[in-house]
């Protein structure tokens, strides 16, 4: 038995469009213009957003550095003002000041670690941000160990105090290494290019 394909009714056929070449070119031009404007706008917006993120991150790092400079000044003053042959009372006073600075350093590093850790940065700056956070973490650990050393000294556990200070020295060296990483990552992010081997 032969099958017959039914005819499509006229109402379902597409109407013929009379194409005006001039209008078509104008429409295409308009679409191209919209796409160009959108592209340029998007590019400008992304660039502006990234600049803004870097500026915010830089502002937070600057604030952190300013606070760390204050901590540093207190540390230098505390260490350099220690008498060469302190009495017991002078030693106790110096260690109390040391404990207060350690606590201040601990809260300063914890605060800025939280602020900078919450920053959104462009992909090129993630290494920079990560290295700086690492540096703050090591510094925070060093200050915590200073606090432990001061507490041990207060309890007249001098051997434990020495051990805590030795641990703090190791954490401090890790901090210095992390700051080196930060500088390297920042140079790469600003100049572009591959990360050279450490």
């Amino acid at each position: 038995m032969a099958l017959a394909i039914p005819k499509i009714p006229d109402v379902l056929r597409l109407p013929k469009i009379a194409v005006d070449r001039r209008r078509a070119l104008t429409a295409a031009g308009a679409v191209a213009a919209v796409i160009a404007v959108a592209f340029i706008g998007w590019t400008l917006h992304v660039g502006w957003t990234e600049d803004r993120q870097v500026a915010a991150f830089g502002g937070h790092v600057a604030a952190s550095e300013a606070d760390l400079a204050r901590v540093s000044a207190k540390i230098s003053s505390c260490i350099s003002s220690r008498p060469e042959y302190p009495s017991v009372a002078e030693s106790d006073t110096a260690m109390r000041e040391f404990a207060a600075i350690a606590e201040y350093g601990r809260v300063v590093t914890a605060y800025h670690r939280q602020v900078i850790g919450a920053d959104e940065v462009p992909e090129a700056y993630t290494g920079v941000q990560s290295a700086y956070i690492r540096a703050l973490d090591h510094l925070n650990r060093a200050f915590s160990l200073w606090s432990s050393a001061a507490a041990a000294y207060d309890a007249k556990a001098y051997a434990a105090a020495k051990d805590h200070l030795a641990g703090a020295d190791r954490a401090w060296k890790d901090y210095v290494a992390a700051i080196g990483d930060y500088d390297r990552e920042l140079r790469i992010a600003e100049e572009g290019g591959e990360i050279p081997p450490a």
């Binding site: 600049d51 302190p86 200070l165």
Partner: peptide, 22 residues
């Protein structure tokens, strides 16, 4: 007898700021 426990490492290294930072 006359000694105050002190860390060997205590100098904070200033970090370079990103361009655009304050």
């Amino acid at each position: 007898l006359h000694s105050i426990p002190a860390p060997a490492e205590y100098r904070i290294r200033p970090a370079r700021l990103p361009a655009g930072g304050a």
